[in-house]
Structures are given as structure tokens and as C-alpha cells.
Amino acid sequence: MHSNKYVLVFVFIMTTIVALVLSFMSIGLKGIHDENEAIFNKKAILSSIQSHLGENVKAADIPDQEVLDIFDNRMEQLVVDIKGNVIPQETVNASYKGGLAEHVDMKKEKKKDPADKMLPVFIYKKDNGEKFYIVSVRGSGLWDDIWGCIALKEDFKTVAGAAFDHQGETPGLGAEIKDNAGFAKQFSGKSLYNSNGDYTSVVVRKGGAVDKMTEVDGISGATVTCVGVSDMLYSGIQYYQSYFDKTKS
């Protein structure tokens, strides 16, 4: 048996050494961690327009340097409010360090009142001058948050692509919104307005799309997640409505 004094000294020395090594490691790697996270988030944004980046391009497979190049040269970033006004970078910087659209944390924005929301917009310019407006949406699935990026064409009516992710949906069921590439691909070409011109957003329909113009097929066994996706798209895209109207006119 060791004395209490020995135990205390032993534990103190050991925890000090462990704490020192770990904190040095954590600080030393922080730069790389932040860079990786930024690239990961940028790839998620790009995956909503991956079908327009080239044949058979998968956003996740694009080399890191190329992702940064696309964001530097072809991507314009804006943060707008619910009235459609562009929020200056300095104002955004007060809440999110960096002040660009990519720095906006949608998790925090989801909890805010609509009037206070900061809404990120990414504008991708193709070589032929075609523009895609990518907006961020966030909602609730069955177990936890779900979120996505929706790319719209210049008419602000047609969906050019979509990408979804989730926090903890059931693998094989709700998680298919991310894992099944086909689910997101269905959104391409859908209209946010029905044939009467009313705003419907894109609806994920249980049992299969009825109105092919504005609806996509749901995933069997994942009804709650699919309803979550529909609600998220309906309210999420509506926040941007005034910005779209201003940009169009």
C-alpha cells in the first residue's frame, strides 16, 4: 500500500504531464483542423451544384486545392437579411469571425427570430456566364437537425441541385437523404412554384411524386425525415424571397 501523499503526488505529476502534452498537441494542430473543417464545409456547398461542375464530378473527390480555387475565383459570397438587404461584412464579423457567408453557423441561425437571421448566399459563376444561387437551409428530422444547400437557377424558380446532411437520422432510412445520391438528384429541375404560380417549394411526397413539377419521391420508412425535408425547404427558401425579388428587379 502506498501512502496518501504518494498517491497525491503521483496523480498530480501524471495529470500535469498528460494535460501539457495534449494541450500542446491541440494548439499545434489547430490550424490544420480549422483548414480541414473549412474545406469539408465548402465541399458540402459545392455538392449541391456538382452536376454543373463537370461530367461525373463528385464534390467529395475534388482535390482540396481546387475547392479553394473555386471559392476564390468563381464563388461570390453574400450574407443577406430577411428583407433582402445585404449585411455588410463588418456586421457579420461581429457574430462570426471572418464575416463571409461560409462562416455563418446555421445551427445558431436556426434558433434566431426570422427578423434577426443572417442568411448566407453563395453565387457560383460558370464559364458561360450562367449563375447559380446557393442558399442554406436547416430544419429538424426525426432525431436531430437536418440541413442542406439548395442551388437555384437565375430565374429563382428552378432548382439546379441540392445536397443534404443530417446529425443523427437512422442509417438506411432517414440517413438516405445524404447516403443515397439519387435522393438529392431528384431535386434537379424541380420548380418552387406550381402551375398556378403559387409558392409551394419542393415537396417530398410519401408514396411517390404526384405533381412532377414540384414534388419528389419520398423514402419508404423515413416519413418523418421526409416531412422534415419538405418543411425545411418550404420555410428555409422563403426567408430568401425578398432577396430574390430584389435581385431579379
Partner: peptide, 29 residues
């Protein structure tokens, strides 16, 4: 010290796991 051996072992394991976690975060996000 025998009295606190499990806690000491746990500190060692937790230390190594954190090392793995930090390295993986840097190598393959």
C-alpha cells in the same frame, strides 16, 4: 498506487484516445 490504479489506467487510455482523435482530425477529416 494500487488504490487508484483503475483511474490511472483510465487517464492513460483517455490520453491515447485523445491523441488518436486529434491526429485523425488532422489527417482525414
Amino acid at each position: 498506487p494500487k488504490q487508484v490504479r483503475m483511474i490511472v489506467q483510465l487517464v492513460i487510455v483517455a490520453f491515447l484516445v485523445t491523441v488518436v482523435e486529434l491526429s485523425l482530425k488532422a489527417l482525414n477529416y
